[in-house]
Design a protein around this nucleic acid. Structure first.
Lengths: 189, 189
DNA sequence: AACACACTTGCTTGTTGACAACAAGTATTT
DNA sequence: AAATACTTGTTGTCAACAAGCAAGTGTGTT
């Protein structure tokens, strides 16, 4: 059922997908989707947290106990790999998240907490890096963390609009390089 | 009419706004919005390009003939000022753009071209900067331009979700600094 | 063990109200 | 009289909900 919903979101978008179509695509009746999930928003929340859960597992495995710049880069790498492995999951997840930009969207809370959590993670990694001396102590953890998450969200959005025009790997490389340059102690000499 | 639409989008979102409500909010009948703009999507495209036009005017005045890093920073400053001056315009514009992340959304084309144009602008500025020697020649104009636009879009998105948590001015300062550090010839010595 | 009964679960079909889209008006101006 | 600006009537679609049904799952009775 959730798989059918995901397919239909990719095909026709949120607006264009009807609960009846989801039920029937999954081999059931037109009424089942509503019955199981209560509402369209309820179903989409389920789809969203389902994918989010997969992503978090993936992320935790990649970052493990790392801190500082290494954690940031590993997380970015993990994201890039996740996008390569399951682009459709990321597409659907972000379609749902961006739908949460609307006021009074029921997906809003979900998107908000997801991004807040990612910012908090990044902030913690940066703070830990500052504490152990690997990150410059004049950077603002919150400002950097916000930009870190914003960068990834923004690139994903541009990619959603125009997949072929975004060279994810180039961007990824340059992003990590720029993180190192900006945040870490300059040991060039 | 477009103003009424904008107000209602801020109050209730795209989904929650009905064409009848827009007409009536503007002091007309329930049918006028459909009559004038043909469809809900048509009306919202009009709202979107209306705000977009204001932004472009604002931007052109700010960037004027600048190139290279100066153009990038001026554009970023202009955006920050625009957000401060008319946060509601930016909110509505981006709500509409993010709605374009959906497949088969009629706002998609508009969002796509808007962002493509901004990337093309940034790419041109960077290329000009490389040509006149003010920007390092090992940066990829397209990759940097994409990240530049993605950064701004991403910060805006996080801000839409959670306005109070985003210190636009801090981020702005750090963003410009990082642009200079990464792109320009290092004349620290 | 065999049966009957209440009760739950999983799903379907019927219905309602909201809304976009459109068609057919009615003023009002030129 | 003809175009313009707007309104009202109508239809089809869809989310949401309610009511139903069929197939289990006990639970107690003989």
């Amino acid at each position: 059922m959730l798989a059918a919903a995901q397919t239909l979101i990719l095909e026709r978008g949120i607006e264009g997908t009807t609960l009846a179509a989801i039920g029937e695509r999954a081999g059931y009746s037109r009424g089942l989707a509503t019955y199981r999930y209560g509402s369209k928003a309820g179903l989409f929340q389920e789809v969203s947290s389902n994918i989010h859960r997969r992503w978090v597992t993936y992320l935790e495995k990649a970052v493990d106990g790392q801190t500082g710049i290494e954690a940031l880069c590993s997380a970015a790498d993990a994201y890039y790999r996740f996008v390569s492995d399951s682009p459709e999951d990321i597409r659907v997840l972000h379609i749902l998240y961006y739908a949460g930009a609307e006021p009074s969207s029921e997906l809003r809370g979900l998107a908000k907490t997801a991004f807040q959590r990612q910012i908090a993670d990044a902030e913690r990694w940066i703070q830990e890096g500052i504490d152990n001396g690997s990150i410059l102590d004049n950077v603002s953890p919150l400002a950097e963390a916000t930009q870190y998450v914003a960068h990834i969200a923004g690139v994903t959005y541009i990619w959603l609009l125009n997949p072929v025009a975004v060279r994810f790997d180039d961007i990824q490389t340059s992003f990590k390089q720029s993180l190192r340059d900006r945040l870490t102690v300059d040991d060039a000499a």
